[in-house]
């Protein structure tokens, strides 16, 4: 990746570094959860920063992190589209993603006991197993700490959709959590 000469403005590069590079770990984390592949995540983040730098002149705020995430999300969706056409594609983005997922929902009755704590790897696995677009919403909220408004902007959906997706995501994660807990017994 080489930035064109017209982009070769050291002052712009300095401002961009200061504004965007502190979010590199966050961007990489989001890409890991969206793409579930380390090498693809790396490529996506690199592409994201390249695009962000190109459009940095038109960046007006307010917050850098959601702005970067919106770009990153588009890059990741393009990667998904590419995978779809590739013979090795394993997952498809559900159409009309707000419909009830196929597997069973949260059990009607909450557990009486305390929920078990899992190590980081297990939690990552549970989160990564969520279906899209619920995984995306969940990660933006619980791991990236974005507000509903910011998530809505990143995912380009109304705030109401963010709320219903998040409710669904947490219900799904709770089911998976309980199932994991049952298995670990």
């Amino acid at each position: 990746m080489v930035v064109k000469a017209s982009q070769d403005d050291p002052e712009k590069a300095r401002r961009f570094r200061e504004a965007a590079l502190p979010y590199l770990d966050d961007a990489y984390t989001l890409a890991r959860y969206l793409l579930r592949d380390a090498a693809d995540a790396e490529d996506a983040v690199q592409e994201c920063y390249l695009r962000a730098y190109k459009h940095f002149d038109s960046y007006r705020g307010p917050a850098m992190k959601p702005w970067l995430f919106a770009i990153l999300r588009n890059v990741c969706r393009a990667e998904y589209a590419r995978r779809k056409t590739a013979p090795t594609a394993v997952e498809e983005l559900p159409e009309g993603g707000d419909q009830t997922p196929m597997w069973n929902e949260a059990p009607e009755t909450p557990e009486k006991q305390m929920l078990r704590r899992f190590d980081g790897d297990t939690v990552r696995k549970l989160v990564a197993a969520l279906a899209e677009p619920f995984r995306e919403t969940f990660v933006l909220r619980e791991i990236q700490n974005l507000s509903y408004r910011e998530i809505a902007d990143v995912a380009a959906v109304p705030v109401g959709t963010v709320m219903s997706r998040l409710a669904r995501a947490r219900a799904m994660l709770r089911s998976a959590w309980l199932a994991e807990q049952e298995q670990a017994k």
Binding site: V3, F16, V45, G120, V127
Partner: peptide, 22 residues
Amino acid sequence: SDVSYKAPLELRRKIEKALPQQ
């Protein structure tokens, strides 16, 4: 729990390299 990831150094370097040096 530790659920975030750390960007690989190589990725950071690739991005740094693509930006015009000061």
